[in-house]
Design a protein around this nucleic acid. Sequence first.
DNA 1: CGTACACTTGAGTAGGATCAATTGAAGTGG
DNA 2: CCACTTCAATTGATCCTACTCAAGTGTACG
Lengths: 198, 198
Amino acid sequence: MEGSHSAHLFTVLSGWGFRYKMLDDGRRRILNYMMPGDLIGLQGSLMGEMQHSVEALSPVTLCVFERDKLGTLYRNYPDLAYDLTWIAAQEERILDENLLSIGRRSALERAAYLLAFLYQRAKATNLFKGERVSIPITQQHVADTLGLSIVHTNKTLKKLGERKLIRWADRGCDILDDEGLMKISGWDGYHEKNRPFI
Amino acid sequence: MEGSHSAHLFTVLSGWGFRYKMLDDGRRRILNYMMPGDLIGLQGSLMGEMQHSVEALSPVTLCVFERDKLGTLYRNYPDLAYDLTWIAAQEERILDENLLSIGRRSALERAAYLLAFLYQRAKATNLFKGERVSIPITQQHVADTLGLSIVHTNKTLKKLGERKLIRWADRGCDILDDEGLMKISGWDGYHEKNRPFI
DNA sequence: CGTACACTTGAGTAGGATCAATTGAAGTGG
DNA sequence: CCACTTCAATTGATCCTACTCAAGTGTACG
């Protein structure tokens, strides 16, 4: 929860989750999604207090670090420290991309971007074992990520469905045409090399 | 420039700048503003290539690091390495906040947030020596930050001016009522403690 | 004196919000 | 096993915020 003083820092080992913030009036804003290899709570560890909340979308397993030992880690394991910074910088890069998308693209473009992005990230982390290629989110999640109303989100996703780019199952989305989504969104894909796994 | 392979990492010592990305159609998206104490090029240093461009808003002085020596720094100066991560995490926090604002607030709220935010950050970094309290940006910058058209940005800023919250000078904005802006934006201010200065 | 750039202003339009209902699947408890 | 609730997805109608188009002003500068 936002505002909590967790004594821990986590690495996601398996499963899906998301980071979000709430506004006073009850509206939720999803900031990003968490997948294996992501860090949870770095901000909290460095600055004393979580600035956002985190929630799971599927059963998740985590690796736990003691927050107090972060200083020790920096002193004794410079390579790990470097990896931590790398992951933080990568998260920053993703946020840049999201910001670009939300500020300057239409609803259809944004939706296409989000789904292509989630699909590609998930694929890069082996979240799709075998053929099952479904993203475990609701349309409300999409709306809260893109800053659209649910109604309009629904109509937008329906358009993507009509074009055979995705198929919306209950509580999940199947990607049918990754390339097609990227073309609509004007996004050139997720290129990440050598992500360290802590 | 985005895509460049700079051999350097910089710290801003004085002056204003901003980070941005361009879309194919020529539209610009400002991601964040840079002030004394900020890092430029960490992403580029860690991942080999700049993912965004940077531009100055006023004369700027920088402190230069050799990118190659980042490994050495992590091995020999763990405290500095820790500070680097701290700054990266802080940037992430600011991006979260921007994302929240852009996705879930009206034009007036967003504009109020942006100006209050810039004002408070600048104040925290001693950018305002003496009485001169002016933010050196054009309305085009505001538009490209908030994802609004210039026309609508102009009308929105005018409203803030009518309410005596700001005064728009040519190429600059004076903040008259910081509290009032925060109230409109529904933002509770910039609380940053102990930022390291590298 | 001409050009460029930042800022203004007005008119018409459209993309997405809000309001209001409905369907359908998945629990849950008696 | 069936009524009852809940939550996700869907659809239609109306409204309004912010966009686009189109001019115009004022100032700085070569």
